[in-house]
Simulated assay, not measured.
Amino acid sequence: MIKTEGLYFRYHDEKDEEKYALKDINLHVTDGEFVVIIGHNGSGKSTLSKLLNGIYLPTNGKIYINEMDTSDEALIWEIRKTAGMVFQNPDNQLVATIVEEDVAFGPENIGLPSSEIRKRVDEALEIVSMTPYKRKPPHHLSGGQKQRVAIAGILAMKPKCIIFDEPTAMLDPAGRKEVMKTIEYLNKKEKMTVVHITHYMDEAVNADRIIVMDEGQIVLEGTPRAVFSKVEHLKRIGLDVPQITQLAYELNQIGYNISTESLTVQELVEALCQLV
């Protein structure tokens, strides 16, 4: 679904010509995969998201979305229909005064007939559990609800892949939970390819694969258990680990012989019970 080859990117206003926001990124995301990208501020993860959607073009290297080259201007509209994008602030994506009109905006712009638009809007709102709010003004909704409407607007375009660029960063815990439930539903039930960029480690626990970025490069990747077990490595580059993994690590440090690969409360409880 997504492939990058020797990807480099440098901002045009960067005075230092040797300063790259991304350096030699080689990435492969398969159809239906749930990939989470983590990294501290300035690591390059949000820059990468904008390259995957064709908002930016590579300085060097190639990006292919479903085998389409993002540097081919003739394909850019098809690329953006294939790989939709949800940004950090939902207010920047909501354009209409009524929820269902906002979700209809994309399909209307590609000239679909009214009957098909109606069908897509209803389906998208149902998927994100926002049907009861379809005639509400977006500004009456909570942050989590607004973000789910923004997701519905992307779903109505029927993409094969959705890129989420820190979609929960501006939400309270309840809103974060709503949005993460929706993201995981899209991947597991709707079989959509998901690339989720976040700085919340607990949002990566259920991913198929985690990619860790630092200073514009991929420095670590693997399953959540494999990545989060590298507690010291992650801390050296300014990242935390899920609370359960951190607790397991600290218990291990003071002499309790338990695995540092625990990701859930139940797993840690079982590991501790084996010591009794």
Results as ranks from 00 to 15, higher is better:
Tyr8Met: 00
Tyr11Thr: 00
His12Glu: 15
His12Gly: 11
His12Cys: 08
Asp13Thr: 13
Asp16Phe: 03
Asp16Met: 07
Glu18Cys: 12
Tyr20Thr: 13
Ala21Asn: 03
Ala21Ile: 04
Leu22Asp: 10
Lys23His: 15
Lys23Asn: 14
Lys23Asp: 13
Lys23Ile: 07
Lys23Phe: 06
Asp24Trp: 08
Asn26Gly: 09
Leu27Arg: 13
Val29Cys: 08
Glu33Met: 12
Val35Ala: 12
Val35Asp: 12
Val35Asn: 04
Ile37Phe: 14
Gly39Lys: 09
Gly39Met: 14
His40Arg: 15
Asn41Tyr: 05
Gly42Met: 04
Gly42Ile: 12
Gly42Thr: 01
Leu48Tyr: 01
Ser49Tyr: 00
Ser49Gln: 06
Lys50Ala: 06
Leu51Gly: 01
Leu52Pro: 00
Leu52Glu: 05
Ile55Glu: 06
Ile55Ser: 01
Ile55Gly: 07
Tyr56Val: 12
Tyr56Met: 04
Tyr56His: 05
Leu57Gly: 01
Thr59Ile: 00
Asn60Tyr: 13
Lys62Arg: 11
Tyr64Gly: 03
Asn66Asp: 13
Thr70Pro: 04
Ser71Asp: 12
Asp72Lys: 07
Asp72Cys: 07
Glu73Tyr: 07
Glu73Ala: 11
Leu75Pro: 02
Leu75His: 04
Ile76His: 05
Ile79Val: 13
Ile79Leu: 06
Thr82Ser: 04
Gly84Phe: 01
Gly84Leu: 10
Val86Ser: 04
Val86Asp: 02
Phe87Val: 10
Phe87Gln: 10
Asn89Leu: 03
Pro90Met: 02
Pro90Asp: 09
Asp91Thr: 15
Leu94Gln: 13
Ala96Asn: 08
Ala96Ser: 15
Ala96Gly: 02
Val99Gln: 07
Glu101Phe: 14
Ala104Lys: 10
Phe105Asp: 05
Pro107Ser: 05
Asn109Tyr: 07
